[in-house]
């Protein structure tokens, strides 16, 4: 069976691969969007925090014997807690300053964290096994689909949906949206906005760590795994609109698929196609697809 002159297994295989990459783009850009919306800080430490999630999963397994399922819960909590400490000690001092300061601080912190892990664990990468329950593959007639990859797409989608629901449909979410517009007034109504910002940063970082645990069995656990991904994720965030939740999720999955398809039809462009889309979107709509101008 051929589609557009391409064998179906190849085409669907690349679309699936694109969806998986898209799942990570979506999860990571979601965390960035949540943080940017509330704190007005572009969190360049995000890639390092994603990597920390994967490493914490590895440490939990190697040192404490806590497996994948436990790590999926614990690693985001642990890495989220480090995020909370970072926000309290450092990032909270930058809110009144220009974006540039937040960018420099978080970028520098990211480099430091990455360097520390490289010093300690080397850069060759550590193995992390797929949990027994998610091993194997489904035969979909046109291709074999590894169970774990299907799981990643599903979980990422559920996580994005849950985050969107929390922000759009709950009381906490209404505080977040209101504080994004006018934090001073929300605080004058009696809400502790500084604490809310701390917890928001922690939650965004926890999302990155969660993505890191999901990634651990697919990519090898290594200190650079975040910085490789984060450049693309920033392009996704720019395309989706800074601070737009729905925008980040849709562009995350969408660009993953576009990237996958480019690999089929014009492989030479597959690593640049996202940046081409970014440039086009910025030329046509500087506020991006769903962003606030």
């Amino acid at each position: 069976m051929d589609l557009f002159g391409i064998p179906a297994p190849l085409l669907f295989g690349q679309v699936l691969l694109g969806l998986i990459n898209g799942a990570f783009y979506a999860l990571l850009s979601l965390g960035l969007a949540v943080i940017f919306g509330m704190l007005n800080v572009i969190n360049f430490t995000h890639g390092a925090q994603f990597m920390m999630g994967a490493f914490v999963a590895w440490m939990l397994l190697e040192w404490l014997g806590i497996g994948y399922w436990g790590a999926l819960l614990l690693a985001p909590l642990i890495v989220g807690a480090t995020g909370i400490i970072m926000e309290r000690l450092m990032i909270a001092r930058l809110y009144k300053l220009d974006h540039l300061y937040g960018l420099l601080l978080t970028f520098g912190l990211g480099l430091i964290i990455e360097g520390l892990f490289r010093n300690e664990f080397g850069s060759s990468g550590l193995p992390y096994r797929i949990p027994v329950e998610l091993q194997g593959a489904w035969d979909l007639d046109f291709m074999f689909m590894p169970v774990y990859r299907g799981w990643v797409v599903l979980v990422a989608f559920v996580m994005c949906l849950a985050t969107w629901l929390v922000i759009e449909k709950t009381k906490i979410g209404s505080y977040l949206r209101a504080a994004t517009e006018n934090p001073a007034l929300v605080q004058a109504f009696g809400i502790n906005v500084p604490r809310m910002m701390t917890l928001t940063y922690g939650a965004g970082v926890a999302l990155a760590a969660f993505a890191g645990v999901l990634a651990a069995p697919i990519y090898s656990v290594n200190p650079q795994m975040g910085s490789n991904l984060i450049i693309i994720v920033f392009a996704v965030v720019v395309i989706g609109g800074m601070g737009s939740i729905l925008g980040s999720v849709l562009t995350g999955f969408g660009l993953g698929i576009i990237e996958g398809l480019t690999k089929v039809f014009y492989p030479e462009a597959s690593s640049t196609v996202i940046f081409v889309v970014m440039a086009l979107v910025l030329l046509a709509r500087p506020a991006a697809l769903l962003g606030r101008s």
Binding site: S174, Y175, A178
Partner: peptide
């Protein structure tokens, strides 16, 4: 008035 909140959400916002 918060633009991204509807009337009910605005009304219920102050604790």
């Amino acid at each position: 008035i918060f633009a991204s909140l509807d009337v009910t959400e605005n009304l219920m916002l102050p604790p």
